[in-house]
Amino acid sequence: MGALNKEQIQFINNYLDNSNVIYADIRTEMVDHVASEIEEIINNGDERNFYYIFKDYMIENKSKLLQNNKKFLKTADKKIRKALFKNLFSPAGLVTIAVFFAVLYLAFQYYSLETFKDLLFAVPLVIFLIFGLVYWIALRRYKLERFSAVERISLPLVFIFHFFVFLNNTFFGGTAEESKMLYIILTISIILSVMVALFRVTIQLAKGYQKRFKNLTVL
């Protein structure tokens, strides 16, 4: 008995996909592991149909496999946080914050406080929504595989954005005063810089995956 055929591999892949192992990077490794285990069982003399062997294997091992999936996502989040901080506090990241701050501060001179404040908080949210929408359309339109780190990358932004909004509402009461504007401008500069950093990290990760998984579609 040799290796499992394409249909059997596809069956394992679909089963894991339906079991919430949605990210291709972790599923690829799990498919190979399960296939190797089943091939070993067959090579050791089990003459039953593939589907029976697969079913028995899953009854015994599914929980362990899914536990692996959860841990993988934790590691992916850690990897993103590390890359994000490294990028944000690099010389280029700090220059980005300074440039955003300078541009917003200059723009502040030409608008009323209320208009400027509303605009400042709307811009990151609108950019974030556009980014999410483009990603969602691209996934469906081009039938792209979902990769854990790339997809989970917007999570830190959501947390940071809500953290600053919370700080603003708690300590600055929501009314616009000139003394608060420097804080608001700094807040928005940081949020926009985080978005730029996230964009850089996304490109970096996507390129890495593209290079690593260039044969993925043949699965």
């Binding site: 499992l4 296939a35 496999l65 590691t75 690593r212």
Partner: peptide, 28 residues
Amino acid sequence: EGALYPALHKLEAEGLLDVEVAKVDNRL
């Protein structure tokens, strides 16, 4: 597998391991 793969991914994230993907026996 519940112990091995998380350990491998952690070592990879720490930069101690590098990864290479190859097509073998109808799968990656």
